[in-house]
Computed example of a mutant assay.
Amino acid sequence: MEPHPEGQLLGPAQIRELAGRLGVRPTKNWGQNFVIDANTVRKIVRQAGVGPDDVVVEVGPGLGSLTLALLHTVDRVVAVEIDPVLAEQLPRTVAELAPDRADRLTVLHQDALTVTALADPQPTALVANLPYNVAVPVVLHLLEMLPSLERVLVMVQLEVADRLAAPPGNRVYGVPSVKAAWYAEVSPAGKVGRNVFWPAPNVDSGLVRMVRRDPPVTTASRREVFAVIDAAFAQRRKTLRAALAGWAGSPAAAEQVLRAAGVDPSARGERLTIEEFAAIAAARDADA
């Protein structure tokens, strides 16, 4: 495989040739859509705001398009790949196209949802073209398990990007929006067309940026707060008095907790901030 003339990044022909040589056919099970456009991976790295001091976690590196762009910019990349063939090939691809950066790559052959810790140096950023079928669980899991992550820039299905970045009151504001807000300030970072992927997905994509912040100040645990969020959105058209009845024990108990938290019992979950959900969880603890 000859080095790519544009900064040793993978082009469409190289990606198809490499996939053919490996017998790789992108699978829906693992949500595989490989980025074949060098400008797109450069844009992702630029939008991520990472530099030579960063240690980046990349989930689902695939054939290495984004990995190569990251390695030219950051200190280290820890790539988490579930596909055994791709996990084995990635170090070889980097050794061929970026031999001076090969020692800065670590490949973990595992499911990102099983990652609980990483060896030093601790990662500072998550940058990835995420498999669309597990994008939200992966982001929330890694934010929980890797507290050293300061920034996130991920490419996901546009609908998911809109949900993650939605503010309270927005029609797509829901569980992913609120839980992501527990960990970070979340904002949209641009749209990505379908023709930069192989195979081209039947949906548009979007970039989401997250900047780590302290969680709300509350006496309740994250688990307790997330239980309130899940209950509130399980029946999102109901008032909180009704939606939280099962969680609190009865509609009357839910109303008592909501009033103690300073939240209108007739409101719906889609209007509440993460701070208000935390206040509800804390009010129930105080009442117990």
Rank of each mutant, 00 (worst) to 15 (best):
V138D: 03
L9H: 02
A242T: 14
V77C: 04
A248Q: 06
D120T: 14
Q14M: 07
T218K: 05
V85W: 03
D287R: 15
L70W: 01
G20V: 08
V257C: 07
W30A: 15
K43C: 13
A112R: 08
V107H: 06
G20C: 08
G31D: 06
P176M: 08
P176W: 13
L108D: 02
V192S: 03
E81Y: 10
P137I: 07
L143A: 10
A253R: 07
N29K: 15
L113Q: 11
P52T: 13
E185V: 15
R171D: 12
D83R: 06
A189H: 05
Q122S: 15
E144H: 15
K179T: 15
V154S: 04
L63K: 01
A253N: 02
R16Q: 12
T114M: 12
D111C: 11
V217K: 10
R209G: 11
E275F: 00
L18S: 07
P26C: 13
Q89D: 07
V138F: 08
P26N: 14
V228M: 06
S65H: 01
D120G: 12
A283I: 04
A13R: 13
L244S: 06
T40Y: 01
A243T: 09
A13L: 11
N170H: 15
A234E: 07
I15S: 07
P201W: 06
V160W: 11
V154Y: 10
L126D: 04
A231G: 07
L126S: 10
H4S: 15
L164V: 15
A243L: 05
A128G: 02
K28C: 13
R268F: 06
A48R: 06
V175L: 10
A135E: 04
W247N: 03
I280H: 06
L70Q: 01
A13P: 03
V225S: 09
R213F: 02
L97D: 00
V50H: 03
A243M: 09
P26A: 14
I36N: 04
S65C: 02
N202A: 11
A261W: 00
G51R: 03
N133A: 11
P3W: 09
L126V: 12
P215F: 08
E2W: 13
V217D: 13
A102T: 02
L108F: 00
P147L: 10
P215V: 12
